[in-house]
């Protein structure tokens, strides 16, 4: 009887208290705050400071376009912008050309799952070693008395060492291609591994040659992998400065190198302008690549 009384009493009262939707908020808050304070704020600060007035050793928060004008009228800065775009395009193409055949072999031709895993792990292992050491390792390879010249001369292919191998744009391209092609191989091999081989066998039964199968089946199906790889490679190459610092002997100046030297000489506003230009460049590249493929869907 008393239970019924309680029931009557509570009957019409609507349920108001929802199961805390704020719980997710509390879990997210630390990460979101961290990213806002230490990622978004610094980036905004960079944009803001690019409009500050640069004096010899300090900057003042008086807004001006002077740094921007200096950037776009200076051959050094515009040259660096052009070099960045050029190196990025060359390295991008080089990583695809160098990485695709290896990915094709690992992702499609190796049927044994264990061997496939071993090969992929072999490709990824260098990623776990120090980036700077990998860059530096090219010096004894490419130098005038380096391994490559030594081999070439011992084989009698050349008489004198090839000097252009090190401390040139070529050495930067070689170094970057080696370091970043792993990021191209992975996604492409992943996409190729998802191809149902019975399609290819069916095409073979119909008498299609390898190139025809490659052009009509394999290449289109692997394109999302190429684009994902291109996003990885682009983001990393555009933000580069260490490889060119180590291997070009100051001959190749990327926007990243400009930022480093400007900061070194306390030209914060100029560095900020270069940073904003680099951000815009990267945003445009990534946005263009994302139009080709939906990253969230593919991964």
């Amino acid at each position: 009887m008393s239970m019924m009384a309680v029931a009557e009493e509570t009957e019409m009262e609507p349920v108001v208290e929802k199961k805390s939707p704020g719980k997710a908020l509390w879990l997210l808050a630390p990460g979101v705050i961290w990213m806002s304070l230490f990622l978004v704020l610094p980036m905004l600060m960079m944009v803001y400071v690019s409009f500050w007035t640069q004096t010899t050793f300090t900057i003042e928060p008086t807004l001006t376009l002077k740094s921007w004008i200096t950037f776009f009228t200076s051959d050094t800065y515009l040259g660096a912008l052009w070099t960045t775009v050029r190196i990025w395009l060359i390295v991008l193409v080089a990583t695809v050309l160098v990485g695709y055949p290896a990915a094709l072999f690992v992702g499609l031709f190796v049927k044994n799952k264990a061997l496939q895993t071993v090969l992929l792990v072999l490709c990824v292992i260098p990623f776990w070693t120090s980036f700077l050491i990998r860059v530096l390792a090219w010096r004894p390879m490419l130098g005038k008395e380096g391994a490559i010249n030594m081999i070439l001369m011992n084989l009698g292919i050349t008489d004198a060492p090839i000097e252009v191998l090190l401390f040139s744009e070529l050495s930067v391209i070689i170094g970057m291609t080696q370091i970043y092609c792993v990021f191209m191989v992975g996604p492409i091999a992943f996409m190729l591994g998802r191809i149902d081989t019975s399609i290819i066998e069916a095409a073979q039964d119909l008498g299609a040659g390898f190139w025809r199968i490659f052009r009509t089946i394999i290449l289109p199906l692997s394109m999302p992998g190429v684009v994902v790889g291109a996003i990885f490679v682009s983001v990393m190459v555009l933000g580069e400065f260490a490889t060119s610092a180590a291997l070009s002997g100051r001959k190749v100046n990327l926007l990243g190198n400009i930022i480093v030297t400007q900061v070194g000489s306390l030209k914060w506003a100029f560095a900020a302008v270069a940073g904003v230009v680099l951000t815009i460049l990267m945003g445009a590249v990534v946005a263009a690549l994302l139009r080709v493929v939906d990253l969230r869907k593919e991964l």
Binding site: S2, M3, V6, A7, T10, E11, V15, K18
Partner: peptide, 12 residues
Amino acid sequence: QPDGGAILFDGK
């Protein structure tokens, strides 16, 4: 969570 109504278990 229900959108409306009441659940009583052992009268509570």
